[in-house]
Design a protein around this nucleic acid. Structure first.
Lengths: 235, 235
DNA sequence: AGCAAGAATGCTGTATGCAGAATACGGTTG
DNA sequence: CAACCGTATTCTGCATACAGCATTCTTGCT
């Protein structure tokens, strides 16, 4: 499957691509690059919610003409990150508290399904990989290194979904996750319940190792509820 | 929420828009119209899976220049209905049997969630509306009028999701449903288990009326399994 | 005859130009 | 002083133009 061939947006710190990107010479087209770039600008807050996007301005800023930029905006509009009003241009989507709550509910359901499937389909090496990612995440937590922690956190969720082997699930999960990335990014700014989130992640690894499908599904769904509790006061 | 503001694609018989389009003067932009039009062309098979889309040709055929057409293609690529290879243009996405299976699994999960939420949030009038749609659908079934039956069938599913009140759910459901529309359209061509599908829909109304959340969730999830059984030999 | 290299053609990717709508501003009037 | 209307400017929407790459056909060589 894979409707979205571009990488999932990065955290906005480094370049868009993973370092081990090799593959059969994928010529990144300009509008694809712009999609990633603008997505990052939205996630890191440079383009704040509700901001109107002036095509000429942003285009000049990115060193790109209006054409590929407009194409990128259409793509992002389909993802739901921006809204287009005919004749009035593009606006960075505003997510209400209810939008976020709704998204987390759906995400919980999707990851729950992913967890059940992953427990069935995961190879031992895949489980080990997730465990390794988790270990690195814990290290970042102990070093209080927020950005890498945040990235690894997201990657673990994505990995579990990928292990499910269901491409449609990967796709829609990616869409919702992209919409929430900005919010979760903010949610991890505060110090409060950071430890709790790490503990919950700890369980994922344990349950995946035990291939406890229902347990993992419950844990992932619960994680979304807990995430809501952590972020709901900030939106 | 609502990332996708355009209408869900039509059945491919008539023009994309309803004739009574009035509303608060929404100036339909050209690329939006093209999105709907091309989506319909894919669903009704005019643009078969694997077909390469020549921008100039299709543009001339639709009476549109390449610019809005290309913008529409980017949008549809994000939806996952077509694939873009840099330098090589757009191709109508081919869905493998596994893709369809995966999509139905996700759709079952999403509609299951929608059913649970709908049983809680539905107003009596909304339930009556679904029941009325179902009655019309049964009438079309008895008249063996396939196209309206097919449309109403889809609308009922969409209605239940909408009643859930979860906009994120509406969005992702819409994406998966759009991808499957072509397949389901084919699935209802054969006469075999048409009656069975109608019976399953009958249950939806009964369970929704009874506000049996878990029952409706199970019925909707099961409906997707059954749908797979009905279509799996045709893909 | 088969293969390879080069040329030619067609298509995509991007930039620019132009027309029409939306917004902002200033002047006028109640 | 406020509200409204007309004008000017800016921005979007679409079309067209141009450059570069991909593909195919042709031609020369083995």
């Amino acid at each position: 499957m894979s409707g979205r061939t571009d990488e999932q947006a990065t955290d906005g710190t480094g370049p868009a691509r993973a370092p081990d990107e090799r593959g059969p010479i994928v010529r990144q087209t300009l509008h694809d690059a712009v999609v990633s770039r603008v997505r990052d600008l939205i996630v890191d807050g440079t383009l704040a919610s509700g901001t109107r996007i002036h095509e000429s301005n942003l285009g000049r800023e990115l060193g790109v003409s209006r054409t590929p930029l407009r194409e990128a905006l259409k793509y992002l509009a389909s993802e739901g990150l921006i809204e287009l009003s005919p004749g009035r241009g593009a606006v960075v989507r505003q997510f209400s508290a209810k939008d976020i709550r709704d998204s987390l509910i759906v995400l919980g359901e999707l990851e729950g399904l992913a967890g059940r499937l992953a427990c069935v389909h995961a190879s031992e090496s895949q489980i080990a990989e997730v465990a390794a990612m988790h270990a690195r995440m814990v290290a970042m937590y102990e070093a209080r290194d927020r950005l890498p922690y945040f990235k690894l956190n997201q990657e673990i969720h994505t990995a579990i979904v990928r292990i499910s082997g269901n491409e449609a699930l990967v796709d829609v999960h990616g869409i919702i996750q992209a919409r929430l990335r900005r919010i979760r990014y903010l949610g991890h700014q505060g110090p409060e319940n950071w430890a709790q989130a790490v503990t919950e992640h700890e369980q994922f690894v344990t349950l995946l190792r035990a291939r406890d499908a229902d347990g993992l599904a419950r844990a992932l769904a619960h994680h979304m509820d807990a995430t809501w509790e952590r972020v709901k006061n900030e939106v």
